[in-house]
């Protein structure tokens, strides 16, 4: 697992880690933006690696050994990525709203659109899709294990 190694190297004092850091653009002399770009390059890999490290373990539901568990782990990962994206989106929106400094505010119509689009249409769409996936999965699992 190369990501895992990279992450471990970055964190746990591998003799090469200074090089790896520099490769990834994380030196002292870089500007702020260069450093951001560097983190952006190493970040997702690191995060993914962290996730993988965090997933194993004898009782872990993310280290599946059976059919049901595998399907459920898939469900989890789908929801996890979805949740992350939505959370980042909402936070970004809130930040934009709070930091907005241009002189005239957006029209009231835009605000209503936001409430309708974000609160109603977007959430109904996402939730319906998820519900269909989840319920189908439930049917399959129950049929497979002979319950229900």
């Amino acid at each position: 697992m190369p990501q895992k190694e990279l992450f471990v190297a970055a964190c746990v004092g591998n003799p090469n880690n200074a090089d790896k850091f520099r490769e990834a653009g994380l030196g002292k002399t870089e500007t702020f933006w260069q450093r951001c770009i560097g983190w952006a390059r190493i970040g997702p890999a690191g995060l993914a690696a962290l996730m993988l490290v965090a997933c194993d373990g004898p009782q872990s539901s993310l280290d599946p050994a059976g059919y049901d568990a595998r399907r459920l782990a898939d469900l989890f990962w789908v929801m996890f990525v979805g949740a992350l994206v939505i959370w980042v989106g909402v936070m970004a929106l809130a930040f934009y709203a709070a930091r907005r400094r241009d002189s005239d505010p957006p029209p009231e119509g835009a605000a209503n659109l936001l409430i309708l689009g974000g609160g109603v249409i977007f959430s109904i769409a996402v939730l319906t899709a998820l519900l269909v996936y989840g319920l189908l999965l439930m049917g399959q699992l129950r049929a497979y294990s002979g319950a229900g």
Binding site: A94, Y96, A97, P106, A111, L114, I115, G118, F122, L127
Partner: peptide, 17 residues
Amino acid sequence: AIPTAVQLFAFIATVML
């Protein structure tokens, strides 16, 4: 989750305007 989202988006919209 839908009415909850509506309320939160309304606050964000208020901040935006």
